[in-house]
């Protein structure tokens, strides 16, 4: 099975007033298509930076990052935005739906940006995705009119809008109560079963234990990969 993620000797430093801070040190990691990976570690260990490297939100100081067969080092910001819209579904801790668009419009937006589907297909596809996450009846509401769990499910639908091979999330259940977090996690499991590659940062040890592969990061180094 081809690897969706190939990371080789990745290093990342941030320049601060106190000098350069090395956040990732010689990280190498491969993730195959369909894998469901948890990235865990203490605060400041570098796990969010590692995820940001996969989405192109951050650039490596050295090393190589290949995602879905594309070398991310070579793209500028605009190319990266388009590529990301088509190949990576990003899920945030605080959902980050655009407040002035309805749930349905939020899900259609990545298709608009990337021109990924014919215009006539976008709405039925968005409704289908919302139906899959159980939100078809909330499609025309503004984000502020639905609960946090519903917003995160809408964010998952948005992440799936362009049918990307890779879904990444930074603490996607971190702002949800345990029952809702459970529902959302089940959804991720279902996506994995359908062949999506998922890589999620989490603090929740119980959730991490239920994921097939766990990458533990500490002080910028992958100390365990099980």
């Amino acid at each position: 099975m081809a690897d969706v993620i190939e990371i080789e000797h990745l290093n990342k430093e941030f320049a601060t007033d106190a000098g350069a801070v090395r956040v990732l040190r010689d990280v190498s990691l491969n993730v195959a298509r369909g894998e469901f990976v948890a990235v865990v570690g203490p605060s400041g260990s570098g796990k969010s930076t590692l995820i940001n490297m996969l989405t192109g939100i951050d650039r490596p100081t050295s090393g190589r990052v290949m995602v879905a067969g594309t070398n991310l080092n070579r793209m500028n910001e605009n190319q990266m935005a388009r590529w990301r819209g088509r190949n990576v579904g990003v899920i945030f801790q605080f959902f980050q739906l655009l407040p002035t668009l309805t749930i349905l419009e939020n899900v259609m937006l990545p298709m608009d940006f990337c021109n990924a589907y014919p215009v006539s297909e976008r709405k039925p596809r968005a409704l289908h995705l919302l139906d899959q996450v159980g939100l078809a009846d909330q499609a025309h509401k503004l984000p502020s009119a639905v609960s946090g769990g519903q917003q995160q499910r809408a964010a998952i639908a948005r992440a799936l809008a362009n049918d990307p091979p890779l879904i990444v999330g930074d603490e996607p259940t971190g702002n949800l109560d345990s029952k809702t977090a459970e529902q959302v996690f089940d959804m991720f499991g279902e996506l994995s079963r359908r062949g999506k590659t998922l890589m999620l940062v989490t603090h929740d040890r119980e959730l991490a234990k239920r994921m097939p592969r766990v990458v533990r990061v500490q002080d910028g180094i992958v100390i365990r990969d099980t």
């Binding site: 910001e77 605009n78 935005a81 388009r82 819209g85 990003v90 945030f92 940006f113």
Partner: peptide, 16 residues
């Protein structure tokens, strides 16, 4: 600013 980041994260380029 955050919203801009989100839009870029889901595929919006500078033109958008």
């Amino acid at each position: 600013s955050k919203e801009i980041g989100v839009m870029r994260a889901i595929g919006a380029d500078s033109r958008d």
